[in-house]
Simulated scan of single mutants.
Amino acid sequence: MIQAKISSVRMIELSALIPEDSTNRGFPPQSRAVSVYNQYHPADGWPAPAGPRRKTSLYLEIGTTAGVTGRYGPIDQEAVAPLAEGMASSLLGLDALANTFIWDMLQRGNRHSRHGNRKIAISAVDNALWDLRGRLLGVPVWQLLGGSGRTRIPAYASTLGTFHGEGEVEETAARLLEEGYTAQKWFFSDGPAQGPEGMERNVALVQRTRETVGERSALMFDAFMSWDLQYARRWASRVEHLRPDWLEEPFPAGAIESFSQLRASTSIPLATGEHLYDRHDILPFLQRGLLGVLQVDPEWCGGTTDLVRMCAMAETFGVAVIPHGHGIHAALHVVASQSPEVCPRVEYLFHHMPERHYFETDTPTPHGGSFALPTRPGFGIEFAEDRIKESRDVFAAS
């Protein structure tokens, strides 16, 4: 029997100056929840920072009496306060392999643990413990979760950060198709506050992408909680004949009645989940048949432990789970361990993932539109020491 007690918990911050990127044009305009106020919706997007800029990333490390350390990251800043203010120290002395007990203890330990920053912190702990277990046993996390019947995991290309200028949509859509992606997701630039002109741009985005890829690629579209029911119905009636494969987060995550009414009025499948943090949150969406795809995030919803439970729930209702692509490590391993019917693919934000995992070596990267199964123990997160210019402990408990 393996004996491994948790002996330390620390959050480390890695940083370095990244040279100016002459190709970085900044961030294009994207419809967001706050875009209901037109003054908070920059028509030309957000400009690129001038000159070199500092890149920082947070990683959680959990040490044990067995001499093996589990690691996960990058971690969101929102997780730091709950961990530093008592959650980390509550782990000391516990059995590092008791993932389910630790998850349950942390969930029950505070009345606000079901949502928000505390749930993000629980997710970080859970994922670090899964990495620790894999390192102790010398196998990847997907093997711990039951193995895999696949040799490669398909990905869809998420185009967040792509400008919609003349020819740019068409060039990007065609390039992704050529690279082997059989599905791609696009982000709307406008919502109700941008008026009829914004609606025309949102309709045109569907037209332009469908004309480019034809029937050779699935096409999905993300409104990022920035629409209302009337607006979503008008858009759907305009583009339904172009067969979008889903409309993602047209409304705030808790707006179940809006989802229900839109679902009843269009054949376009609906998707949501990245801002649903709990099994109780997703259950009414499943029970009422509102979703074509559930998109919970393993770095926000409670980690690998609860993502696997949510997959089992969704499978019962015949709903596919494609985890939100905030990171890639936990999502890839969970999807690899599930049936292709339950988890058909992962999301890959090709503009953002290389920099998000800047301080890591050999970060999982798709080739030909799919990932090879990871082979390193745990999640395989190792640091590229030559890229790290500074490292400090944000907090440490031991």
Rank of each mutant, 00 (worst) to 15 (best):
I120A: 10
D131E: 11
T209A: 09
E171T: 14
E85K: 07
F101G: 01
G198V: 10
S158E: 12
S189V: 08
R150W: 09
G180M: 04
R175M: 13
E171G: 12
D190C: 11
R118N: 04
M199D: 08
P140M: 06
E85W: 02
N127Y: 02
Q184W: 00
L219Q: 04
T151F: 07
R152M: 09
T162L: 15
L160K: 11
Y156M: 03
R201C: 05
K119P: 00
L144A: 10
L177Y: 07
P140K: 03
A204I: 00
D131R: 05
L97A: 04
W130I: 11
D190I: 00
L83F: 02
A173N: 13
P140C: 05
Q207G: 06
I102C: 05
A96P: 04
G191P: 04
G134A: 11
P192Q: 10
T209I: 09
T162D: 11
A183R: 14
Y181P: 02
Q194N: 10
F188K: 02
G138N: 09
W130Y: 15
P140R: 01
G180Q: 04
F163H: 12
S90K: 09
M105W: 08
D95L: 02
T172V: 13
V139M: 09
G180V: 06
L176S: 05
G134E: 12
V203L: 08
A98M: 08
Q107V: 09
V213K: 02
P82H: 03
W186P: 00
I102Q: 04
T209N: 01
G195W: 09
S217Y: 00
L91A: 06
R133C: 14
A121Q: 12
A218P: 00
D190A: 12
L94D: 07
E200Q: 13
Q194V: 02
R108I: 03
G198N: 07
G195R: 01
N117D: 07
R133H: 15
T159R: 10
G161N: 11
T100S: 14
L177R: 15
S189N: 01
R216S: 07
D131T: 02
T151K: 13
E215F: 00
E215H: 06
G134D: 13
V203Y: 00
E211S: 07
T162Q: 14
L136Q: 14
R114D: 03
A128N: 10
R150P: 13
P192T: 03
W186E: 08
L94T: 03
R108P: 01
D104H: 13
R118K: 12
G134L: 14
I102P: 05
L136R: 08
L97K: 02
A124T: 06
D95H: 02
N110C: 11
P196S: 04
R133K: 15
T159M: 12
Q194T: 13
K185V: 11
V139F: 04
I102K: 02
L91E: 05
T182W: 05
W186L: 08
T162W: 07
N99T: 13
S189F: 00
L145Q: 05
R118T: 10
D190T: 05
K119R: 15
H112Y: 13
R201T: 04
E197Q: 12
G198C: 03
Y156G: 08
E197L: 15
L219G: 03
T100R: 14
N127V: 01
F101Q: 09
S217P: 00
R152P: 02
S113I: 02
E197T: 12
R201K: 11
T151Y: 05
Y156T: 10
L92C: 05
